[in-house]
Design a binder for these strands. Structure first.
Lengths: 110, 110
DNA sequence: ATAATCAATCGTAATATTGCAATATACAAT
DNA sequence: ATTGTATATTGCAATATTACGATTGATTAT
């Protein structure tokens, strides 16, 4: 079918799944790392650094923007992207909670 | 195309992307939460609790198993699944490192 | 042996994702 | 006005994902 049955899961489960889906591509991970490491917003530059076509990178940026992980602002002739601190905090918190559910003390499945 | 160009990214970027992709579905998140909360391996039970068909759940379990996030063992009449502590630790560590790249002190993109 | 139960696999339909060429849009410089 | 530069959008082809009915395989109970 290819259509996730979102209505049978909780808001939180869907939210986390959508955030992780936005991260779940090496190109988008590379883009985010590039933005973070530069410690400032990143304008252009991405095309040529990654080995992907301009249209493809633009599409990945759009995806990251639509989930709110990054935001862009026009800076003269080009567009600058940077991490959205609010969404990033949400991601950190939600992911931490999820991972913390595992206490690591199961004494089964040897 | 639908074919990720994995060869142009680093091993680490691909590894993280694959782990996150395995997590990036509400059903698989729900399955993992159910396993974690029960604090023991979970045998069957999943079908009926989530609103998905048996074949669908089996498929999601297979996906989680193939990336190594869970492992299954035959327990009498049914099959038990539990978190694989090693992969879970890798996930925690890799994800923590990724998130920590953001220092949150960009003074741009207002 | 037969029936019952549980989980895996197969086959298939519907939909989503990835990637890029081509094109469009926006703005700056000449 | 025209040219150049940077990013976005469109359209398309190839592949992947999601979901489930039907079937199969394995085990247990009768």
């Amino acid at each position: 079918m290819g259509l996730t049955k979102a209505d049978i899961f909780s808001k939180e489960q869907n939210r986390l799944a959508m955030l992780l889906k936005a991260l779940a591509h090496p190109a988008r991970i590379a883009i985010l790392q590039r933005i973070m490491i530069s410690n400032t917003c990143i304008c252009g530059d991405l095309v040529g650094e990654l080995g992907l076509a301009q249209a493809t990178i633009s599409q990945h940026l759009k995806e990251l923007k639509s989930i709110g992980l990054i935001k862009g602002s026009i800076e003269g002739t080009s567009v600058c992207y940077c991490i959205d601190p609010d969404t990033w905090k949400v991601l950190e918190s939600v992911m931490k909670d999820f991972l913390a559910n595992y206490k690591g003390k199961t004494i089964c499945c040897q």
